[in-house]
Design a binder for these strands. Structure first.
Ligand code: MN
Ligand code: MN
Ligand code: MN
Ligand code: MN
Lengths: 223, 223
DNA sequence: ATGTTTTTTTAGGCTTGGCTAAAAATATTT
DNA sequence: AAATATTTTTAGCCAAGCCTAAAAAAACAT
């Protein structure tokens, strides 16, 4: 089993997420560069190397997509990231907006035994603190029929099950308005003008959420 | 607070241990190279760089010793290493011979908040699974009046409190002869010929330990 | 279809942290 | 005090991963 450098792993994970969210299409050089915060030229460099290692398909000017093997490795990295985030929140008491950067480091520790024991220690969690599913050893993960809050109609009730983007600033905003995973909502009103919504949060106040917020919140309908 | 690379941190830690065990004398290029498994030339290179950063005193041909600042950083790295080892044994159920290599990776994760919370989660342990003291945030650590088992006279009783070298092979040997931290011993016989000792282990069998074993076991005398 | 803009690649360079081989300095024998 | 052996440094090289600037390709507009 080949050992990858942290940089290589990060490229795989980035391509994994880009292609996943964009329905299987190849990830563009610029998109990868934007996510990783590197120059596009550096990305081209790395794509050649990872392609030579058989981890991704790459043809000049038409972006990259993962091979079977690349996908396995990327999925496993996602598994490690989400397990560490879960550990940091559940065991060390971090808040959900503080764990991403630390997990970015911890995910690169190489030891399958460690990951396995961590998983067991956490009672094999299915979702991370942001509601994202944690792949198992074989790469399988729970899927949930979640929709964006913005997709609900007036009157519908739902429970918050995840966030689309988990930057600290968004998570801190959610904390401020007392929204966490599991929060029960009902849509009271929807404004076509700017896509904002007035929402009742069970046991809390009513809030008007901007379109951006509504699109970043994943919910599951309830009756 | 400067951020060091894993390589830089490892050099500091190595020099820390070499100078500590050798009573404050400078660490030689070759000794450092031997511990790190690198070529001597690479060490010379790094010593120049770390010296330029003010982390160690280095003069050509006369080895290296840590500055105040270098010592602080090295001590903090040792703290992280030993806390992670403790975590792996106490929380994840690893055996004491399996944790060193993983801790070598975990120790480089940069987050003082993480270390602080880990310390609290473990109930601020004073010693790691090998009996080595864990420095606190300020670098202070418990010291114990421990002696090598080889220093005991026939008839004396003692309790095992640590090991000098904690390579897996030695720890596995100890497991085989059912010695762990806290084991109560009594010296039955000592052979001048090869420095070996016959020892009674409370509740277990009697064993004859080689000089090498006796020098690598730290004990505290009891009556 | 041609020109313009955007994206991607190439070319050349830099730092880190390694290496080997040869030279120089230090230590040990004789 | 030489001669020899050991240790350390220098010199020159390399790969990974980044960079900027320029060239080339692709996409978009007119
Ligand atoms: Mn994350
Ligand atoms: Mn997450
Ligand atoms: Mn260790
Ligand atoms: Mn230890």
């Amino acid at each position: 089993m080949e050992i990858l450098t942290p940089a290589e792993e990060n490229y795989l994970k980035t391509i994994f997420k880009l292609t996943e969210s964009d329905g299987g299409k190849a990830a563009s050089t610029n998109a990868i560069a934007a996510v990783l915060g590197t120059a596009a030229a550096s990305v081209t460099d790395m794509l050649k190397r990872l392609s030579a290692k058989g981890l991704l398909h790459y043809e000049k000017h038409r972006g990259a997509s993962l091979t079977e093997r690349g996908n396995e490795l990327a999925t496993n990295l996602v598994r490690r990231h989400r397990l560490w985030e879960t550990f940091l929140v559940m065991k060390l008491g971090f808040s959900w907006d503080a764990v991403h950067d630390i997990a970015e480091q911890l995910e690169h520790v190489q030891s399958s035994e460690l990951v396995e024991r961590l998983d067991a220690f956490l009672d094999r969690p299915k979702f991370d603190p942001h509601g994202d599913p944690i792949p198992d050893t074989k790469g399988r993960m729970a899927s949930r029929k979640q929709v964006q809050l913005s997709a609900l109609a007036v009157g519908e009730k739902a429970v918050v099950v995840g966030v689309q983007e988990s930057q600290a600033s968004f998570l801190q905003y959610l904390d401020r308005v007392q929204i966490s995973l599991g929060a029960a909502l009902q849509v009271l009103e929807q404004f076509d003008y700017d896509g904002s919504m007035r929402v009742a949060v069970q046991g809390k106040d009513e809030y008007t959420f901007s379109q951006k917020v509504c699109e970043n919140l994943y919910v599951q309908k309830t009756k």
